[in-house]
Structures are given as structure tokens and as C-alpha cells.
Nucleic acid binder design. Structure first.
Length: 608
RNA sequence: GGGGACGUAGUUCAGUUGGUUAGAACGCUGCCCUGUCACGGCAGAGGCCGCGGGUUCGAGUCCCGUCGUCCCCGCCA
């Protein structure tokens, strides 16, 4: 028979009691985390979100309560009423904050029972993710998840307070909005009142926040859910939370100051001090040094190894002398066995004819002079791993529209292949180089970076047209404005990404605030005036009514918390995440719906 | 859309070269135990080896398909 809570009031949380509370009456409520039944004496670790306290049922002191406690099992919910007692010196548990005290129970109320659980919050080995997601409410009881979710709260709160102090207003924007065909796939919501018509869930509040600048709010922010119907990754969920902001009259540097300020506050809330201003790097340099636009600065950059080899060497190795010769260096990997070297090959994803020499020892044996030069130039210690990535001689001539760029598409393919391999190797050998940990502790070494001067357009080979690299509302550089029509490949965008330890935290830009320039961009993207009018007419019109210069950025809250938590997946910091197939295993969403619901919406089922 | 890994008691895993009755730990049930704290001891219950097909005298083990979970490429303005 279960007890009622009645008017019983909790006096302390389970992580609170200290020796200074000795002698006090206390009422604790929580879950039975563990039970140790020694016969005449029963110990229960009582748990709530703050921690555990040992509560004692002693037959000698209170036979009736002791007998009642014999029924307790894992995850029962109880109220324990008793006296706080300082523990004898030889029974202190130094492993828990409450280890110097215990609660000697005089009254026990069993508020609820629990069936045997599929896994226990107190388990030392983790259940697999499928289990954890199906029984998410149990998984969330675990210390680690309680910590992560509280961390998320602390970080979000610090950011809100900081942005408010910097003069930003938090303003809500609609979730039921308009589908915009460019960019990610939209999640659609059918309209019942307008049969055959659809709302879309926002991929970001982009146009609303620009409109808010036109409306005179000057500084806007929102911690807001965004939705993208694309395939998932460890760091990508279909719904995710952004710290979205926009401000009037900023240069890029002004936006960066705002971001650096709230990130400082967020990291401080998590107990970390970070240095500002962040480092800055041109997109072109990021590609040439790291092969990626979100470099992890903790791991050594590429070494340009071309001048280490003579022309004959390159020919003999069938290396394309017109393309980059890249040495990737991963510190302290040590001697690799033949099998370990073979394991490197599958990590390599070749783009545009890139080749890998995963066995640098062989190159050193064959070309000792060149090998020595590579070692010196890259600053390699004897136990560092070196892998070469090069272009194959077959790589054809470059007729791509972007071939005039500082980094040509053919070069980009080599850099990008090497960039992916560098990251894969750094992760594979994380245990050896120790620059970052594979799992567990959060990084202590936070290397922030602003990546700037992205190209305005990327060429889509499939559609044979230029696409906006950031989004079509991004302003080109003032001095590149005249190349919009004549030479779109060379136009740089006033866009910037903020990167932390190889993760893209956020992306932003100075926006176009003039209707004439916005129209030219749409036209450069191959969009006719009529098409632009039908998709963004309201926005083009708004630009004509006195739009101030404005710009902003959006950062992924989930990713920030993930890094602070030392987690490898967003699912560790999102209470109710989706699987890689975008399913909710607990709710079992999505589901079919009743035919009547579809009829109301005017939707027929199309069978594949 | 493509590639890879995994799937065996409630849970986490082991299972040899294809061979008789599929094991361990934790959890669960019962009994014992007054200072444990991942308590300890004794006894017990618990298995369509994801699902379907095939090879074989014989399949947890080999092959094909399928479903699920994870990772990566594409994709993510």
C-alpha cells in the first residue's frame, strides 16, 4: 500500500546535507538509487537531481520503519523523514559530497513503486543508444544527463543575460511560415483552411530578423528552434536550437565583438575562461592550410611539400606537379605496423583524382633527400605520423568557371581530400597524441577562429549555375560589387563563420540592405525578376522602405553545449533527440495518421 | 542515394575450425547477514541467438535478403 504525500514538505535536496546540519530534522524525497540490505540495517542511497544522501534504516532504533524499508527496491520514490547524523570517522564516504553525514530515518513514506527497469540510472556500464532513447526518461535520470541538461540551461541563461545587457531584445518569430525553395529541404505543414497549401517550419528566422531591423528594433536575438529536413549526423539534428541575432549598422567586427562577449559569458557559466578577440583567417588560407573551412587549430596544419621533391621524383611517383603536394603531420603516433598503415587507406576519400601515400617510410627509403626535407619543413619529430596527399597525373585541365580563384577547383579537391584525412587521422590516433580526448572530459584547450572572406558564389555543376555560398541575402564586399555580373567567381562575401576546435559553431554575414543590389544578386543566381518577385516579393518591397544597413549571425546552442560537455554527439545534450533516421524512439514519431485527418487537409496518400 | 560497423538472457558482453545441454557479470526472485556505500554469502528464475530464406547430416557461427541502431560521403542556401 502506497503512502500519500499529504502536506509533507521537503526540507533539503539529496545533495545538500553537510556536517553542519547534524542534529537537524530533515525530510528528503527522491529515488532509491541503490539499496544495501545488511539484515538488521538497511542503507539506501536516495537520489534527486542534486546528488545522493545515504539514509539508514536500523532495526535496533526503529523496528517498524526498518521492516517497511525491506520492501524498497531500485527506483522506488520515497520520502525519508529523520535526523541528520554526522558519520563516525571510519564510515565516512569521501567519494560523495554528502559522505560525512547520513539520515537516520524515523518515518518512511513509499510514494511510488517501480517495476524492474530495462536499465538503471546507477548502472556503471551504459545501455546502448537504442535502449537509452526508447526509455529516455530513465536515461535522463543518470548523473551525466542531468549534468548536461543543467549545463545547457546555465549556458542558455548566461547568453540571454549577456545579450540583454548588450542591448538586444528577445523577439519571437513564427514557426508556421513560408517555404523557400533554396537551401535545405523544408518540413511542411499542410493548411486545412487553404486546401493544397503548405506552411513550412523555419530553417532559420532569416527574413523575419531582417524585417525586424527594417522595423527599427535595432538589436534582436532569439534562442530559437530551427528545422531542416536533411540527413542527420552526430552533430546534426532535424530540429536544433540556434542563438540567432541581428543588429543595425554593424561592420563584421562589431558582430564578432557581440559573439565573443556572449561566448565568454557562456563558457564562464560552464567554468571556463576563454581569450578574446578570436583568431581570424581567410577562407582561402583555411583551405590551403587545413583543407577545410572549419579547421581544428589544435592539430598541426598541412605542410606544402612540393618543393621538397625534385621534378624527377615527382615524375617517378606519378605526382601531378601542377597540384598541391600536401604533407599531413599527426604528432606522436609512433611506429605503425603494416596492418596499421593499411588501416589508413579506408579513411581516405578521394575527390577529383587525389591520391594518398600512407606509407611515408617507403618514400623516405626511396627518396631520402626529399623525405628529410619534408621532415624538416613540417617540423616532424621521429614518432610523428606523416602522410602525403597529392594530385594524380591524370587530373585533367581545369575549365571550371571558378578556375581563376586563388584556390582553383582542382586544387580544392586535393586540399579537401587531405583535409578530411587529417581530421580522420587526428581522431583515430587521439589516444596517442593526446591533443584532444576521444571521449569523456571536455577539451581544456579552446581554439576559436573567425573564418572570413568566403566566396560569394559556388558553381553547381548539376544545375549549371551559380549558387549562394552562404545565402542570397548576404552582402558582397563593397569593392567586388562591379564583378557581380562580369566575374561572379571572384566576388567575396561579407560572411563569416565562427569555428571552435574543428566544429562550425555559427555562421553569419552583413546583409544586403538595398533593393537594387538584392535584385542583382537574384539575377546573378539565375533567378528572373518575376521569380524573385514571387518568392521574395514582400521582402524586396520591404527593402525599398528605408532599410538600414544590418547584419548578424546564428550559433548552434546544441553544438556549444556538446563541446562544453565533452560529448561526441548532440544527442547527449538534447533531452529528446531523433535517431539517424529522424525517428523519436520514445514517442514513436513519425506515425501514420487517420484517413479522416488527411481528408480534412485535402491530402491523398501517394504510394511509391 | 552510396560506403562501413553492430544486432546472443531484462542489460552489457563472451561464444574456438560449423558439432551434443548457448555461458559470465550486473539486474530480478527467495533465504542469510548491524556499518555498508559498485556491500557480501547461498539458492533460483530468465534465451525464436533481430526477422525471413538458403548451404549443410548438422547453423548463434557460412551465404543472400530484410529490419533496427550507430559512423562517414553525398546533402545540410
Amino acid at each position: 500500500m502506497l503512502d500519500f504525500l499529504g502536506d509533507l514538505k521537503r526540507t533539503h535536496m539529496c545533495g545538500e546535507l553537510r556536517p553542519s546540519d547534524a542534529g537537524k530534522q530533515a525530510v528528503l524525497m527522491g529515488w532509491v538509487n541503490r539499496r544495501r540490505d545488511l539484515g538488521q540495517i538497511i542503507f539506501v542511497d536516495l537520489r534527486d537531481r542534486t546528488g545522493v544522501t545515504q539514509v539508514v534504516f536500523n532495526h535496533e532504533l526503529n523496528a517498524a520503519v526498518h521492516e517497511k524499508a525491506e520492501a524498497l527496491r531500485n527506483e522506488f520514490v520515497i520520502a525519508a523523514i529523520g535526523t541528520v547524523k554526522r558519520r563516525d570517522a571510519d564510515t565516512i564516504n569521501p567519494n560523495i559530497p554528502t559522505g560525512e553525514v547520513e539520515l537516520v530515518v524515523s518515518e518512511l513514506r513509499i510514494l511510488n513503486v517501480s517495476k524492474a527497469l530495462p536499465f538503471l540510472p546507477s548502472d556503471t556500464v551504459l545501455a546502448n543508444e537504442e535502449m537509452r532513447l526508447k526509455y529516455r526518461y530513465i536515461d535522463l535520470r543518470r548523473d551525466a544527463m542531468q549534468f548536461n541538461i543543467k549545463l545547457r540551461h546555465d549556458v542558455a541563461l548566461a547568453i540571454r543575460a549577456n545579450l540583454a545587457a548588450q542591448g538586444f531584445f528577445e523577439i519571437e518569430t513564427p514557426f508556421m511560415t513560408r517555404s523557400t525553395p533554396e537551401g535545405a529541404r523544408d518540413y511542411l505543414v499542410p493548411s486545412r483552411v487553404q486546401p493544397g497549401m503548405f506552411y513550412a517550419l523555419p530553417q532559420s528566422p532569416q527574413l523575419f530578423k531582417q524585417i525586424l531591423m527594417i522595423s527599427g528594433f535595432d538589436k534582436y536575438f532569439q534562442i530559437v528552434r530551427c528545422f531542416r529536413d536533411e540527413d542527420l549526423r552526430a552533430d546534426r539534428q532535424p530540429e536544433f536550437t540556434q542563438i540567432d541575432l541581428e543588429m543595425s549598422y554593424p561592420q563584421p567586427e562589431r558582430v564578432w565583438e557581440v559573439v565573443e562577449s556572449f561566448l565568454t559569458a557562456a563558457f564562464k557559466a560552464a567554468g571556463h575562461e576563454i581569450k578574446t578577440p578570436f583568431a581570424r583567417m581567410d577562407f582561402d588560407d583555411a583551405i590551403r592550410q587545413y583543407g577545410i573551412d572549419k579547421p581544428d587549430l589544435r592539430v598541426p596544419a598541412f605542410t606544402d611539400a612540393k618543393d621538397c621533391f625534385g621534378p624527377a621524383d615527382l615524375e617517378q611517383l606519378a605526382i601531378n606537379k601542377d597540384l598541391p603536394v600536401i604533407a599531413i603531420r599527426i604528432p606522436k603516433v609512433g611506429e605503425l605496423s603494416r596492418k596499421e598503415r593499411d588501416d589508413i587507406k579506408p579513411l581516405f576519400v578521394s575527390k577529383g583524382g587525389a591520391r594518398v601515400f600512407e606509407d611515408f617510410k617507403r618514400i623516405e627509403n626511396k627518396f631520402p633527400e626529399a623525405g628529410a626535407k619534408v621532415r624538416v619543413k613540417s617540423g616532424a619529430a621521429p614518432d610523428d605520423l606523416i602522410v602525403l596527399v597529392v594530385g594524380s597525373v591524370q587530373s585533367g585541365t581545369d575549365t571550371h568557371p571558378a578556375s581563376k580563384r586563388k584556390v582553383t577547383p582542382a586544387e580544392l579537391a586535393i586540399y579537401a581530400s587531405a583535409g578530411l584525412l587529417r581530421v580522420a587521422l587526428a581522431q583515430k590516433y587521439a589516444d596517442r597524441h593526446g591533443i584532444f580526448k576521444k571521449t569523456g572530459d571536455p577539451a581544456k584547450d579552446y581554439r576559436f577562429l573567425w573564418v572570413t572572406n568566403f566566396p560569394m558564389f559556388e558553381y553547381d555543376e548539376g544545375e549549371k549555375r551559380w549558387m549562394a555560398a552562404h545565402h542570397p541575402f548576404t552582402s558582397p564586399h563593397d569593392e567586388d560589387m562591379d564583378k557581380l555580373e562580369s566575374d561572379p567567381a571572384m566576388v567575396r562575401a561579407l560572411a563569416y563563420d565562427v569555428v571552435l576546435n574543428g566544429t562550425e559553431l555559427g555562421s553569419g554575414s552583413i546583409r544586403i540592405h538595398r533593393q537594387d543590389i538584392q535584385s542583382r544578386i537574384f539575377s546573378a543566381l539565375g533567378m528572373s525578376l518575376e521569380e524573385a518577385r514571387s518568392r521574395f516579393g514582400f521582402f524586396l518591397e520591404a527593402l525599398e522602405y528605408g532599410t538600414p544597413p544590418h547584419g548578424g549571425i546564428a550559433l548552434g546552442l546544441d553544438r556549444i553545449v556538446m563541446i562544453l560537455a565533452g560529448a561526441e554527439s548532440l544527442r547527449e545534450v538534447i533531452p529528446f533527440p531523433k535517431t539517424a533516421a529522424a525517428k523519436d524512439l520514445m514517442m514513436e514519431a513519425p506515425t501514420p495518421v487517420a484517413a479522416a485527418q488527411l481528408r480534412d487537409l485535402g491530402i491523398g496518400i501517394v504510394k511509391k
